[in-house]
Simulated assay, not measured.
Amino acid sequence: MSSKNDETSGIAIAIGIFAAGAIIMGVLIYAIAVFFSLALTVLSIFAWNKPLTLWGNTATPRDARRFVGAGLIGVACAPVIVLFGCALFGFVIEKQYWIHIYLGGYAIGSLGVAYLDLKQEEAEAAARALIVPPTMPPAPPKTIQSHPEDFTFADWSDDEEFRK
Rank of each mutant, 00 (worst) to 15 (best):
M1K: 12
K4R: 10
K4E: 11
N5V: 14
D6A: 11
E7K: 12
S9D: 12
A12M: 08
I13Y: 08
A14N: 00
G16P: 08
I17L: 15
F18I: 10
A20Q: 09
A20S: 13
G21V: 08
G21A: 14
A22S: 13
I23G: 04
I23N: 02
I23W: 03
I23K: 03
I24K: 12
G26H: 05
L28V: 06
L28E: 09
I29E: 08
I29L: 14
I32P: 05
I32C: 09
A33R: 02
F35D: 10
F35V: 08
F35P: 01
S37H: 05
S37A: 13
L40F: 07
L43H: 03
I45P: 02
A47D: 06
K50V: 15
K50C: 07
K50I: 11
K50N: 14
L52R: 07
L52K: 07
T53M: 06
L54W: 02
L54N: 09
W55L: 12
G56C: 08
N57D: 08
N57H: 06
N57K: 10
N57P: 00
T58N: 07
T58V: 15
T60N: 05
P61Q: 10
P61F: 04
P61H: 09
D63G: 01
A64V: 02
R65L: 00
R65M: 01
V68R: 00
L72C: 14
I73G: 04
V75Y: 03
A76I: 07
A76W: 08
P79C: 01
V82C: 03
F84S: 09
L88E: 07
F91E: 02
F91R: 05
V92W: 01
V92G: 00
K95Y: 11
K95P: 13
K95N: 14
Q96S: 15
I99C: 09
H100T: 15
H100S: 15
G104V: 13
G104L: 08
G104K: 04
G104W: 03
G104T: 11
G105T: 02
Y106I: 00
A107V: 11
A107I: 07
G109A: 04
G109P: 05
G109I: 00
L111W: 04
G112Q: 09
G112K: 10
V113G: 05
A114I: 00
Y115N: 07
D117Y: 04
K119G: 07
Q120F: 02
Q120N: 14
A123P: 07
A126G: 10
A127G: 09
A127P: 09
L130M: 06
I131D: 07
I131G: 00
V132M: 10
P133F: 02
P137G: 09
P138A: 08
P138W: 02
P138I: 06
A139E: 14
P141A: 12
P141H: 09
K142L: 12
K142V: 15
I144M: 10
Q145Y: 13
Q145C: 03
P148D: 06
F151A: 04
F151C: 01
A154M: 05
D155I: 15
D158T: 05
D159P: 02
D159W: 15
D159N: 11
E161L: 10
K164E: 12
